[in-house]
Design a binder for these strands. Sequence first.
RNA 1: GGCGGCUUGGCCAAGCGGUAAGGCGACGGCCUGCAAAGCCGUUAUUCUCCAGUUCAAAUCUGGAAGCCGCCUCCA
Length: 496
Amino acid sequence: MSLKIYNTLTGKKEMFVPLQPNKVGMYVCGPTVYDTSHIGHARSVVIFDVIFRWLKESGYDVCYVRNFTDVDDKIIKRANETGKDPIEISEKYIKEFHNEMDALNVLRPTIEPKATEHIQDIINFIEMLIEKRKAYYVEGSDVFFSISSFEGYGKLSGRNPDDMIAGARIAIDENKKNPMDFTLWKPAKPGEPAWDSPWGAGRPGWHIECSAMSNRYLGQSFDIHGGGKDLIFPHHENEIAQSEALFGKQFVKYWIHNGFVDINNEKMSKSLGNFTMIKDVLAKYHPEIIRLFLLSKHYRSPIDYNENSMAEMVSSLDKIYAFLERANKANVDFSDSDKNKMGNFNNLKSDSNSCYSGGESWAAFKENMDDDFNSATAIATIFNTVKEGNKLLDRSGETISSDNLKKVAEICADIKKMGSILGILSQSPQSYFKDKKDAALADGAIDPKMVDQLVMERTEARKSKNFARADEIRKELDSMKIILEDGTGGTTWKFS
RNA sequence: GGCGGCUUGGCCAAGCGGUAAGGCGACGGCCUGCAAAGCCGUUAUUCUCCAGUUCAAAUCUGGAAGCCGCCUCCA
């Protein structure tokens, strides 16, 4: 059993064999920091976060690079509009991006390079391309990459340059030798950010930064390159052209591209005005609900964001946490366990370094993840495991045998371990449900003391067999969307 | 015009040649004073349609219909 990855380059699922044993170099295209991040950014980031976690879990030493494009026409435009410095703009949105991704429990990549901090690398890269006659400088204009100098052009996107030419939707630039040639370096207009170069003061084109920075941190060839589907052409196609034309060897072994997020079955677009920002989604839903949603469908397919789907996710996550809470109450103690040290599962130690290696459910989960990071089936495995655990607890009744307790402990350990890969179930069930209750109480419409009072009154009524009054109170609370649960340890309440 | 993808139960969604995972919802049962939660059972003899290959197809091939993405900044 080993990892298989769908490779955009070949259009097939392939066995994952890294270039160097036990080491993985992964580069993912990060955001252009000129505006607030939307749910689509979150999907890409969360998916590659899970891929990163899974590669590490699989024992690889992963160098994960995700860049920030911090010099670009859109940033300059935004700077001009707001009268701010472009650096101020990019710093603002980098900070915002980090805050939001931290909130979504996304691990920081190994390295987060910025284009503006690698201008010399970029200039060197372009100079070498010119030397090799893969690029040319047009006096008073740009440095262009010559696509006819690279015979593999179009291999990633399956496009034939001749078919695309016609310039149907691109204004033909008289300076280009071939209409499909693209800019490596462009001259700066007065007031624009600029760096000195052999071709005058200017700034890099979009594609070159990724070739230059991936080369700096991961070398001439590396294992995985990812990003959104829309980047396949032209961005990634052009990266391949630049890097392979220069180094004469395969740039990237596995290309991974994620699908888009639609909003109510429509593409996010400015004209529809339906850009859904991460901060707005975070204001409405628990971060783990958002992750669960983003991972509920295969990463290559489009996913539709809508209220109905999100409501389902709320029920789903509650179900898992409810089981963990139930197990906890049955004296399965995992409150201090974390993904590295299953500290309280002492009876589950399976090897000398006391690291829990996982039970049957974990084995199923591993198979799911190894199959092209199939998080949708991996989530199904979590639910199957929850059901198994609930069954054991149901059968046990009041007194659970030590044998069953051990089984439930293993199940809980597996569930927590699976959650740690998907970046969910990081809270204790108690704090999860407390947060949920606090959030529902936040508007101040309901006084929890009043609810407790009614619950106490109902308990008294039940004791004296005054069920009519007890039911009356249940009904009253139900109208406030409060559900009562009579458990062995007394009555608890929650919001529906 | 060129390239690529999708169509699975009321809804969401796996599956990629061996006889339909999982979630949400609904209904019946167990449990409960009544509930909730949980569990058990029922909710697709069938995967947009048509033809073909095969002992065997949701899965492969050909065709039709509908939907979507990229080719321009885009995760």
